[in-house]
Write a protein that binds this DNA or RNA. Structure first.
Lengths: 146, 146
DNA sequence: AAATTATTTGCAACAAAGTTGCAGAATATT
DNA sequence: AATATTCTGCAACTTTGTTGCAAATAATTT
């Protein structure tokens, strides 16, 4: 058994890129594969490490930028300085993200996990405040590290 | 009428610093004054601008670090790369922060505001996930910009 | 109130993170 | 297979954050 992508995911990756009018290149395939493999979120640094220095730093930056613009990934805010990225669900289109689920950051393994099944609860804001997006980040110890 | 701090706030600033066993210096006074004046949160860059390049970048970094350690300020996570800091309430002590209120980021004016009166609601997590801290960031249009 | 001690500041030098222009390489189109 | 388009990697640069150390400032002692 190998650790490489199956034909299944290859087809999936190809489809996502073409569907977003992006050229299918090695770097984009590899980075997208990383996101599909990890159910959690990835920081820029993680990606550089996991691709094994195969691609230039600049390429990784630009790939993440493009994926953001196309609505393939979204950012997750964190209290430390590291911005993390995670895959968007299908409903996400260019500029419009609908990832209203809770994110969990594990203090032990450092992983950020999308808790798809946990919805962000409603909150009542003071008069005059008009919300457009709500982010909820829970930190602690994850399932695996428990 | 001048824009400088009143004697009242001067005394307050002095008290906060001494209470935390910190030397009372110009930079610390000025930076703390900025936090007391703005009801919102400040990024490192904001502070550099508002102090009018009076202090070295390094001093600002170190002052924020010390204020963090002493529990005078806390960080607010954001989706962009800029970490913001805000004053902690009195209950905050070294290492222990109790700022479980909602933070609001205005897309118009860019300000981050602490909604002290809005508590972060409880969420049920899947089995095995042990939460220690919950952050909630709402973005949209604030009271002033509405 | 002056002298001593302890702490803090600013400089310089560096490290890390992110950006931009452009020629060559890879992908897509005809 | 040839052309047009897009993407990559390099180099050079900007921005952001860190560290060591001597000079300056604040706190303490006499």
């Amino acid at each position: 058994m190998n650790m490489h992508s199956t034909k299944q995911t290859d087809i999936q990756i190809d489809h996502i890129l073409k569907h977003n009018q992006l050229s299918v290149t090695d770097s984009r395939k590899k980075i997208l594969e990383l996101f599909l493999q990890s159910n959690g979120a990835l920081a820029h640094g993680d990606i550089e490490k996991k691709t094994g220095e195969k691609f230039d730093r600049v390429t990784v930056y630009r790939t993440l930028q493009v994926f953001m613009e196309k609505g393939i990934i979204h950012t997750i805010p964190t209290a430390d300085n590291a911005v993390r990225y995670a895959l968007c669900k299908d409903e996400c289109t260019e500029g419009h993200h609908h990832d209203n689920h809770v994110h969990f950051v594990c203090n032990a393994c450092g992983n950020t996990i999308c808790l798809e099944e946990v919805h962000v609860p409603e909150v009542k804001l003071p008069k005059g405040f008009q919300p457009t997006e709500v982010q909820m980040i829970v930190s602690g110890i994850c399932k695996e590290c428990h």
